[in-house]
Design a protein around this nucleic acid. Sequence first.
RNA 1: GCCCGGAUGGCGGAAUUGGUAGACGCGCUGGUCUCAAACACCAGUGUCUUCAUUGGCAUGCCGGUUCGACUCCGGCUCCGGGUACCA
Length: 970
Amino acid sequence: MEYNYREVEQKWRQFWEDNKTFKTEINHSKPKYYVMDMFPYPSGAGLHVGHPLGYIASDIIARYKRLKGFNVLHPMGFDSFGLPAEQYAIQTGQHPAITTEENIATYIRQLKQIGFSYDWSREVRTSDPNYYKWTQWIFMQLFNHYYDKDENKALKISDLIIRFAESGNKVVNAVCDEDTEIFTAEEWNGMTEHQQQSLLLKYRLTYPDESVVNWCPGLKAVLANDEIKDGVSERGGFPVEQRKMKQWAMRITAYADRLIDGLNEVDWSDSMKDQQRNWIGRSTGASVRFAVDTILDKVNTPPFIEVFTTRVDTIYGVSFMVIAPELESVPFLTTPEQKEAVEEYVKWVASRTELDRMSEVKKVSGVFTGSYVINPFNDEKVPIYLADYVLAGYGTGAVMGVPSGDQRDWNFAKHFNLPIVPILDAQKEMDVQADNTKEGKYINSGIINGLDYKEATKVLTQFLEEKAIGKGKIQYRLRNAVFSRQRYWGEPVPVYFKGGSGGEPLPYLIEESELPLTLPVIDKYLPTDTGEPPLGRAEGWKYKGEYEYELSTMPGWAGSSWYWYRYMDAQNATEFASQESINYWKAVDLYIGGSEHATGHLLYSRFWNKFLKDLGLVPEEEFAKKLINQGMISGRSNFVYCIIVTNGLKPANTDIYVPISYYLKYENGDLSTQDFQELISETHGTDFLEKSINPMFKIIRLRVNVDFVDNDILDIEKYKEHFNEAKFILEDGKYTCGWEVEKMSKSKYNVVNPDILVDKVGADTLRLYEMFLGPLEQAKPWNTNGIDGSFRFIKKAWRLFYDDLGTFKVKDEAPTPAELKVLHTAIKKVEEDLERYSFNTVVSTLMICVNDLGSLKCSKKAILQDLVILMSPYTPHIAEELWTILGNEAGTISYANFPKFNPSYLVEANFEYPISINGKVRANISFPTDALPADIEAGVLANEVVQKWLEGKVPKKVIVVLKRIVNVVP
RNA sequence: GCCCGGAUGGCGGAAUUGGUAGACGCGCUGGUCUCAAACACCAGUGUCUUCAUUGGCAUGCCGGUUCGACUCCGGCUCCGGGUACCA
C-alpha cells in the first residue's frame, strides 16, 4: 500500500483545526518557550517557496520544545498596513482594507496547508482597529514622556511640568532639542499655555519636527533611510529628493546608549549586532569652541565655531577649519573678496545629487571664506574653508582640519597648499599620506609636548573644561526617527491641533477613551489638491467637530514595533496585553526572520520595548533573546533556445527549439548556415526549408515557466498548451533546459509555488526538503531537483510499517541491541543538532536512521514509536498518522515526550582505531574500548602493516588518543 | 575604503572542542523487476596511476604552528551581505 499523503495530510490538518490542538494557555506548571517569526506583509502575489523557510524552522523548534515539555507560544499574524495595497487602491479605487483582507485569506490558506502549529486564535493584524488602538495608545505614552538622563529612563511629562514650575529647567538633565534655552521657574510660570506646550514639545519622546526628509514624489511618501537604495526608493525605484517638512519624530537617540549596551545581552549574530552598532555610530571625543577672529556682521556672525573631534590630542596640528556649505552662518563668515567664489561653490554643491556626491568621493573640492578662527590652545589664526566632505547633519557641521593625522584633511591640505604639521614623533611618511597613529610622544604641541596619547587627552580635556571652551562629548550617527507618512493606509495619529493666543496650532492628544481613532472614509486615495495627505479628503473629520486632526499616518514600522506582546493576549480590550500574560511569556526566546531588518524593524522594536520597560509595563530590557536570520532563497530560472528564421522557412509560424549545445555553439560563432540547414533537415525533413533561399537565423534564449520543467527536463506537452506551434529538437528523447540563478520573481517565470509542491509531494516532503537544502542562515538558490530524495524518505519510513502488499507488519517484540543502537544514535544527534539549530543535519540523521532500520528489517513497535516522535517536528502529518496506527490517541503526538537518550545502547566492546603513520591512515586495528594507551601502542607496533611502514625502525613517537586515533611517527 | 560572512566532488552540502575529508541527498553509470516505461530495489561513483592490488594528489592561493590542520596563526585572491567623506 503506497502512502497516500494527500488524504492523510488533509485529514490531520482538519483534525488540528477542529480540535484546536495548538491552542496555548498560560500554564505555570511548565516552563514557557516563545518562538516567533517576523510576521509577513500580505502581498498580492502570495507565498513563494522562499517565504516559508524560516516559518518551517520556527515550527520545528516549536514542536520540538513541546516534546521537551515546554509550554510553547507560537503565533502568526500580519503586518497589514503598507504601500502596495494603497497603490492598488489608487489605481482601482478598491479600499485597501478589502485588498488586504483577500491577501490575508490567501496567506492563511497557504500557511495552513504547510501544517504549521500556530495558535491561530492569537492571530494579529496591524490594520485591525482593535490592534492599532494600542499602537496609538503607545504613541500617546511616548508623547506623554520625556527621557531623564539622571534616572536613565523615560519619565512622565506631568512630573517634568512640576519640576519646571518649581525650579525651571536648569536642574533638569533631560534629552531635548539642541536649541532649548535655559529658563527659571519664574519664567516658566509666567509663560502662556501655548508657550509652555511649545517648550514641552522639545522634551516629549515624540514630537512634530521641521526636518529635512527623503521625499519620494513617485510614491508621494517620505521614506526612511533604510527604504532608500542607491538614491532611489527601494520599492518602485523612484527618485528621492530632500525636502523640508513638518513630520512627527521619535526621540530614539535618547535610547542610543541602551540600544548599544543591550546588544551585549542578546544572542544575535555578530554581523547583526555590528550593523546596529554602526548604525547608531557612537563616537567618544570632545567638543571644542574656536573663537571667530573675523567678525563681519556684529549680529549674525557667530562668536565661535564649535567642532566635534575624536582626537583632541591632535589640536596643535590644526591648520584649517572646514564647515559644511549648507550652514546658515556661511554668508556671515564670508569676506567681500571671497563672496563670489563662495556663492558659486555653495550653488554648485546644492546642484549636485546624492549620486554625484557618492561617485566623486575621492575628489577634493572646497573654497576659502576669507575669515579666520583662533585655535584656543596656541592662539594661531586658522583659515575657515567650506568643503562638501563635511556633512551639515553630523555633529556641528564643522571640522577642525588636522592634515597630519586624517587622510581627508591631508588631501584637502595638499590641494590648497596648507601646512601639514607633524604632532607625534612616531608619525611616518607624511609627505605621502596622513598617519593616524596614537603611538609616540607629542611634538610641536605646546602643553602636551613629550606626553603620550593617554596623558595628553586627559590634560587637554581638563584645559577645555577649565576655560569653558569645550568638554568631553559622545556623538551619535543615529538620527531621531521620522514617524509620519503622507499616506492613507496606516494608523491615524491620535492628535489634533489647537491654536492659542494667536500662535501656531500645537498638537494635543485625544482622550484615551476615544481610542481607536479609526481611518475615515475618503473618496480617492491621493493627496488633496492643496498637497495635503489623503486624510485631508475626509469630510468633516475633525476632533469634536472643530479641531484639525493630524493628517499624516504612522509609518510602516509602528505596528510591528510591539506585536509580540499582542500575541500574548490578542483579544484584550482593556490593555495592550494583560500584565499576567506579559509576566508569564516575558520575551521572545527565539525570533526568526530576515537580516534586512537590522537597522529598521529590529532597532525600532528594541527602542519601543525599552520605553515600555521604563513605564514598568514589560519586564525585559530586550524583546528577542535569540535571533536567527534565515538566508534569502533565490530563484533558478530555466531557459529554452528558440531559432528565429528571418527568411526561407516554411511554415512561417513554426518555432523550432534546439538543445542548449546548439545555442552555445551559436554563441561562439561555431554554428554555420550549413550546420543549421542539416540540423533542421534531419528533424523536419528536407522540404522544411526553401532550398533556393539562404536562411538567415538567430538563436535566442527564452525564459520558460519553471512549472513546465521537472529536473531541468521540459514537459513538452505542457509547453505546447501555451505555444502550440513549438517544435523541439530532442536529445535522448527529451529536451533539457538551461538554467541560471536569479532573484525569484514573477517576471523571471521562476517562482516556485508551495501549493504546487504540496500537491505533488506533500507538505511533509516540502518541510523536510526546505530544511535539507542547507544551513538555515545561508543564502541559497532554490532547486526543486533534489526534492525526490525527501519524498523517498517519507515513503521509506512508511514501508517500515507496511509491506508492499499493504500488510501492517509492526510487532510488539523486544528490540535487538543493534536496533536500539540505531535508534539512540538518532535520538542523540537529533537532540544535539536541534539545540544548535542545525536543521539540515537533522534530516540526514533521520534518513540514516530509517535506512538503517530498513536494512535491519526492524518493525518493532518500541523502536518505531520513538522514531515517529523524532520525525514529528519535521513531518508532522505522517507522524500523526503513524502515531495513531501504533495505537496512540489521535492528536497526542505533539505533546508526547521526546525519547530519552540512553548512552548504554551505544557502548561498544571494541573500538576500531585508525592507525595513521606520519599523519596518513594506513590501517585499522580493533582494541577493547577500555584498553590502556600502553597496550594499544604495543598492539599497534606489533601489527604487520605498521611494521611494513616502519621498515624495521623504532618509531620516534606514538600518540594514542583514546577512542579517536593512533598516530605513529617514524 | 571600512565592517561582517563565505570558498570542500558534476550539484546541494557533512565533518560539533585540531584526530579516518566527502556523511546524507541529488545527478550519473551498471544491474534486477517489466512487453516497455514509471516506481522500487541492488552495486558503483573526488581525482590521477594501475588489469587489479597498491600508491600519489586533493577542502580558493602562498607560508607557518603541530605527532596530526577543512578547522589555529600570518599574507593574498575571488564571491556574498552591510555601510559610506561620521571628523
